[in-house]
């Protein structure tokens, strides 16, 4: 499809958010988010529940519709086409086309329960990109191997532990060769023992230069792997900076209060 993916073109950011607003009826969830995610960056979004961080993440691949402001992914406006000073909503097909390049990993895994691990990974490349089944299976096995689950290829999600399911979900997202990966609290539904195996896979991805936006409560991961961190509360960005700085020396009272509880 788009062979125009410029490797490490740092000229424009992977994600740029300008005064993004989102409301459900009268409830305003995002009250003007301004931020930039550079290519190859691991960008961590932290904050209390209800702060709007997951909603913002879901806006990036248009699972939620932005009500105000502008959100760009890889230089292109999300969900709309801008012509003159008018915005036109994109058709479902156009939205789907853009989502191919953005992988998403959910808190509750959302694996397809009626398919084996390998079938989960192979589904989108075959159905969406029309790759041949044998090619997709071969690559699917490589991806499962990479997340350490080659021997579980024929298992159904219900036969896997939470950590294994989440690793399959990561392989499933990678199968579409995304240029950006979104992680929505990927370890929050896991037993503490199983968190490590998922974070290890994510760390590996980060080392390979994948651009990642991670909504997380794992401050250790943010500090160690993160390149940038944003603390959100009440639908606004309260504080941002390098994870080590924000986490060790928070400037705002609200950030301090939050961190004192989670650290």
């Amino acid at each position: 499809m788009s062979d125009l993916i410029k490797p490490q073109d740092t000229a424009h950011p992977m994600v740029r958010s300008e005064a993004v607003h989102k409301s459900y009826g009268l409830v305003e969830v995002l009250k003007g988010i301004d931020l930039e995610v550079k290519q190859g960056e691991v960008f961590c979004l932290v904050g209390p529940s209800g702060s709007g961080k997951s909603t913002f993440l879901r806006c990036i691949n248009h699972l939620e519709k932005v009500n105000g402001g502008r959100l760009y992914v890889d230089g292109e406006l999300v969900g709309y086409r801008e012509k003159g000073d008018r915005l036109y909503e994109l058709k479902d097909r156009e939205v789907a086309l853009k989502r191919r390049d953005i992988g998403m990993v959910f808190q509750r895994f959302n694996l397809f329960p009626h398919m084996t691990a390998l079938e989960n990974v192979v589904e989108a490349p075959v159905q969406v990109k029309k790759e041949s089944k044998s090619d997709a299976r071969e690559r699917g096995m490589q991806l499962l191997e990479r997340v350490g689950l080659a021997e579980k290829a024929k298992s159904y999600p219900a036969q896997l532990s939470g950590g294994q399911q989440q690793r399959v979900a990561i392989a499933r997202a990678l199968a579409m060769k995304p240029k950006l990966m979104l992680f929505d609290e990927p370890t929050s539904a896991l037993d503490p023992e199983l968190v490590g195996e998922v974070l290890d896979v994510m760390r590996g991805l980060a080392e390979e230069g994948m651009t990642m936006i991670v909504v997380t409560h794992e401050m250790g991961f943010a500090r160690e792997v993160g390149d940038a961190l944003v603390f959100m509360d009440g639908g606004v960005v309260v504080e941002s900076g390098h994870p080590r700085e924000v986490l060790t020396n928070p400037q705002h009272e609200r950030t301090r209060a939050f961190l004192s509880k989670v650290l």
């Binding site: 479902d92 789907a96 953005i102 159905q127």
Partner: peptide, 22 residues
């Protein structure tokens, strides 16, 4: 579960394919 539809959409699957396959 709605998460199933979301996961399929996030992978770039069309509405029709999501209904039929997932």
């Amino acid at each position: 579960d709605e998460g199933q539809t979301e996961a399929a959409h996030a992978l770039g699957m069309s509405r029709a394919a999501t209904m039929r396959r997932i």
